[in-house]
Nucleic acid binder design. Structure first.
Lengths: 336, 336
DNA sequence: TAACTTTTTGACAACGTTGCCCATTATATA
DNA sequence: TATATAATGGGCAACGTTGTCAAAAAGTTA
């Protein structure tokens, strides 16, 4: 690779002058700027970021450690948001994926440290509570889509309670009276928060207890969660005869659609369907198009970077902890 | 950050000895190894990869530039595969996403060059033909899920023709006789190759032309492709009365399922459905479970890294070009 | 033209490593 | 015990940058 000195030689100036041109420092005669630029062009010179880091002690790198996040399509958007924001701020993201077989967060953190990452973002696949070693205190660290057990890290999560509350209120507002909530596995935080919001809306509207029900569409069998949305939906719809079904995820809403069709009913007419996720093309593919609460992954990714940059800027040894709940947006389509 | 010299001072040895311990070079007395390791532990020392790169001129970094790939869930697997393989080979992947608004591949390539990336992987969202500037000749470069206009880069793509051929043959083998192929937009390479495979199988089985038909489920209107799978499926099924439908993508298969149900028919019994993608949970969510040709994204990602490493090892200035078609796997479930 | 100011340039050290080579010490051999 | 050999340790230059500072060149004023 060509170095700054080779450029200098070709341009007939000192390498320091080349450095000035490269870094757009003022005080170089236009005449010399031209010569240097020509030499750079001719040799195809690129500044060596590593050398620059060694001297400047500034890497402009942010580590992004993900709990399998980048394999799960729903939350790929977090990564995209983070990357976009990082790029805008002149930082580059260094992405590491946890190996699902041997998940070793610390190992990846070490990697980031060796690259002199300025801060760390840890992203989880779904809204949950995670435990971290003290190693994670080394750098400014922000959690996305999860919180730490001890609540001792800045975190960014979707506002699931508000989402549950809001979508339920919308259903009630539109006149639906018998709502079945097919919730996710109650062990996960999202499910708990949404349920809280759901109940709050019910209470606010004074809906009696026999006019709604909550079931779970996921079963944990030997550590693996299995989706039983189909069976549950069938049973709930036949027994409880809801006029609206609120579904924990778009993927499960597909099953709900199929069940409703198979019963000879029509989604949106006989039974309203609402959901959570806004999972890529699915809501648009379904007929009628699915109205769903969009999880704000992209914005969370952006916010994560801006928060971590704030922590970096704040030159304390102990990083202030803040918690952020990002509101979800209802994509109001045609299913209710 | 603590440096090797500080460790040396604490351990009471020269910094060179510390370096030996850190890099596991032989020839350090166990006694000193212990002292050094204690000092490293106590100070929390991490070697500085940037400094190492400057000296060794070896970054162990591979640049991964993606055409929006990481936002599209289907091909996130490419990234995952690449990352896994890179990790196994002691390399780290530096991921960059093309900005869909101002897609500037060269800009990202520059970034990789500045980080002294040893090679580049360019991944596309869907199997297509892409044009590259001469800049891309700078480093060993491998294309995934696309080929270059001039065919002058090593490329890795799914074997769409074989996939089309294979799945069609399976349908014919199982006794289906009237097959409707609801193909993707014919402008994209995947659609063309699959169609070739489809026709080859038809010919091989001597199926007369009036016993199959091919329609397209995507329409390009003003640059935007719109999915018309629902309408097309309805029309084709009603008019042509196929006993099997081969669908260009799992997402569209959802629509086909809904259409079939709505006509009072049963998928797998009255009409078989097959598809391409194996798009995450969708095939498993559908009822009956969707049999689909899995696009081998994960393997393609792995292969990309291993190819780029091969190019790197091969110390030529002009990199040999090879083309790889990765076979697709049929996930044989219940829809045919 | 001289004296002074301002602009432009270059010399050199430093950043944290690794590679090379020589010095010292310990061990084996005569 | 003297000598040869192997094991161990350290000194120092080099990698490609940036930062500091002083030198040189150019411009300004009297």
């Amino acid at each position: 690779m060509v170095t700054i000195k080779q450029v200098a030689q070709l341009a007939g100036v000192s390498f320091k002058t080349v450095a000035r041109v490269v870094n757009k420092e003022p005080g170089v005669k236009p005449h010399n700027v031209e010569k240097v630029e020509a030499a750079i062009e001719k040799l195809g010179y690129r500044p060596n970021k590593a050398a620059s880091l060694v001297r400047k002690k500034q890497s402009d790198i942010i580590g992004f450690i993900s709990d399998e996040i980048s394999t799960t399509p729903a939350s790929v958007a977090i990564l995209k948001g983070a990357q976009d924001m990082a790029w805008e701020q002149g930082k580059t993201l260094m992405v590491f994926n946890l190996d699902p077989k041997h998940p070793n967060k610390d190992r990846l953190y070490e990697e980031c440290l060796q690259h002199r990452s300025e801060g760390i973002i840890y992203g989880a696949m779904y809204h949950q509570s995670v435990e971290f070693s003290k190693l994670f205190k080394t750098l400014p660290t922000v959690l996305v889509n999860c919180v730490s057990m001890q609540n001792d890290f800045t975190s960014i999560v979707p506002d699931d309670e508000l989402a549950g509350y809001y979508v339920t209120k919308q259903l009630l507002y539109k006149g639906y009276k018998r709502i079945a909530f097919l919730n996710l596995n109650p062990d996960i935080m999202a499910a708990q928060h949404r349920q809280k919001g759901f109940l709050k809306a019910m209470q606010e509207y004074g809906i009696p207890e026999n006019q709604w029900r909550i079931d779970t569409i996921e079963q944990v069998i030997e550590g693996r969660t299995v989706n039983i949305a189909g069976e549950v939906a069938k049973q709930v719809i036949e027994e409880f005869k809801p006029d609206a079904v609120l579904c924990g995820k778009d993927l499960a809403a597909i099953k709900v659609y199929l069940v409703i069709e198979r019963l000879g009913l029509t989604v949106g007419q006989d039974i309203a369907v609402a959901s959570f996720d806004n999972w890529h093309d699915i809501p648009e593919i379904l007929e009628p198009k699915l109205s769903t609460m969009a999880l704000p992954y992209y914005e969370m990714g952006r916010l994560a970077v801006s928060q971590v940059l704030q922590l970096i800027a704040n030159k304390n040894t102990v990083y202030p902890v803040t918690h952020h709940k990002v509101p979800c947006l209802l994509f109001d389509r045609a299913s209710f």
